[in-house]
């Protein structure tokens, strides 16, 4: 089976600087994969290697089962490191030029302009576009070939909140339609909302990979109840006092989240009014920084 994206020990060095090191990245067919990392972590260099724009120092890359570059990007659409177009052409004419390179019909131009909601301004010169419009044109260009694999590098850069929401909707729609999407970002919330799986890169190394829920980890339960003291005593007696902490007017419990129904019944039996009972998740941002810190420490 040809994986949409598969790299083995992918490495890129610039002189003494290692931008990407021994990266094993696998994106499965039909998933939306988030490539997460801070600025300078090696995301864009990796994506450039995937597309054959940058040659790896060592390691291998396969896109849709083929090595990249040299005219082997059929079925692959990409927006890398911000949009770049010809300023003297209109948005529509820019796409027409790119459609010629791609060997696709002019009918795709109108279609992708509609998809990114840029039809009304398609006749304006690119030089007059706002950052958000440029970004949307970049996504439109990436969609020209009706790709099976879409690679988007920070696609929401420059978009306003409504534009960001539209972009997330578009990515989710593409993913639901069977298109494999690899989207890089340094925005945790963005990745969390659209991605099936996430890979975290730091200093050129993949330091974690899994679903957002896996990375976040469900570490316990959060309980809001009255009276709190009674609830704390009852839960402490049930699961052990060392697993109970009173935090911000509620209880943080270090127990399996699937024991929520049992715990609720026990508290109600004890005459406690349970106002809220939910899995207590680690803050994703904290998870991210913990991973980055751990990755940095491992490299050091």
């Amino acid at each position: 089976m040809n994986l949409p994206v598969h790299t083995e020990r992918l490495t890129k060095r610039y002189g003494g600087l290692t931008a990407v090191q021994d990266l094993d990245l696998t994106v499965r067919a039909g998933e939306v994969y988030g490539f997460l990392g801070p600025n300078g972590a090696g995301k864009t260099t990796t994506l450039r290697m995937l597309l054959g724009l940058v040659r790896p120092t060592s390691g291998t890359v396969r896109l849709l089962g083929r090595p990249p570059g040299a005219g082997r990007l059929g079925g692959v659409g990409a927006l890398i490191e911000g949009p770049a177009f010809y300023p003297y052409l209109s948005g529509r004419d820019n796409l027409r030029v790119l459609a010629r390179y791609a060997g696709v019909g002019a009918d795709r131009v109108s279609l992708v302009l509609d998809l990114v909601d840029l039809t009304e301004r398609a006749g304006d010169r690119y030089a007059g576009y706002s950052l958000g419009m440029k970004q949307r044109l970049g996504v439109a260009a990436a969609l020209l070939k009706d790709p099976r694999l879409l690679i988007l590098d920070e696609p929401t850069n420059g978009l306003d909140p409504a534009g960001m929401a539209d972009m997330r909707t578009l990515i989710r729609r593409l993913g639901a339609g069977g298109c494999t999407v690899l989207v890089s970002s340094h925005l945790l919330g963005e990745v969390e909302q659209v991605c099936d799986r996430v890979g975290v890169i730091s200093r050129g190394r993949l330091i974690a990979e899994g679903s957002v829920a896996d990375l976040r980890g469900a570490t316990g339960l959060r309980v809001l109840a009255d009276p709190l003291e009674v609830a704390a005593a009852r839960v402490g007696a049930l699961v052990g006092e060392e697993r109970v902490r009173v935090v911000d007017g509620g209880l943080d419990l270090s127990i399996e989240p699937d024991r929520a129904a049992w715990l609720n019944a026990e508290l109600v039996d004890a005459g406690v009014a349970v106002r809220e009972l939910r899995p207590r998740e680690r803050d994703l941002e904290q998870v991210f920084f913990d991973l980055i810190e751990k990755g940095t420490a491992d490299v050091a």
Partner: peptide, 9 residues
């Protein structure tokens, strides 16, 4: 990058 991402060598 924009041009080469469309597939030509």
């Amino acid at each position: 990058k924009t041009v080469l991402s469309q597939g030509p060598s």
